[in-house]
């Protein structure tokens, strides 16, 4: 599965990735509308972490309408037509990486599109092909098991 990964030692916290993300998906430079967030590491001045979706898929099992599913690249995506805007996935994301913004009723997340990685001048971000996450209860059910 495709996952955006972060190399903290290379990050200089210029936040170009956040701007690129919101421009790519919402056509505006707005950090609150970025799926990736660069944060200073707790208690470590000058060191950074990235808060971004790991494509673990736990949100798939929280969505009441099957709006959240994994695509062929293994990326977890939200079908806006099916979403009823309950934001259960926002509250239940183990990484706090499912996001919401009051301008929209549908939440949003990193889909490993790679735009931020391309724009990152220090090479701190990359989309990698990682081993698939374990199947969720929903995926097992859809495959025919229970």
């Amino acid at each position: 599965m495709k996952v955006l990964v972060f190399a903290p030692e290379l990050c200089d916290a210029q936040l170009g990735c956040e701007e690129t993300c919101s421009l790519t998906w919402f056509k505006e430079a707005n950090h609150d509308k970025s799926a990736i967030r660069i944060l200073e590491a707790e208690g470590r001045t000058g060191k950074y972490t990235a808060n971004v979706c790991t494509q673990c898929g736990q949100c798939i099992d929280v969505c009441p309408t099957l709006a959240i599913q994994r695509d062929k690249r293994g990326v977890v995506r939200i079908n806006k037509d099916l979403c009823v805007g309950c934001l259960s996935c926002v509250g239940f994301c183990p990484y706090g990486a499912m996001r919401m913004h009051p301008d929209y009723t549908v939440p949003f997340k990193c889909v490993a599109c790679g735009s931020c990685a391309k724009s990152c001048p220090t090479g701190a971000l990359a989309v990698l092909d990682l081993p698939d996450a374990p199947l969720t209860a929903t995926e097992k059910r859809l495959l025919g098991g229970v």
Partner: peptide
């Protein structure tokens, strides 16, 4: 949809709701 009830203040609704989740 998340705003089918056409709330007066969607932002606060979403904030309190996601906090509760």
């Amino acid at each position: 949809k998340g705003d089918s009830n056409v709330p007066a203040d969607y932002a606060d609704l979403a904030s309190v709701g996601s906090k509760m989740h």
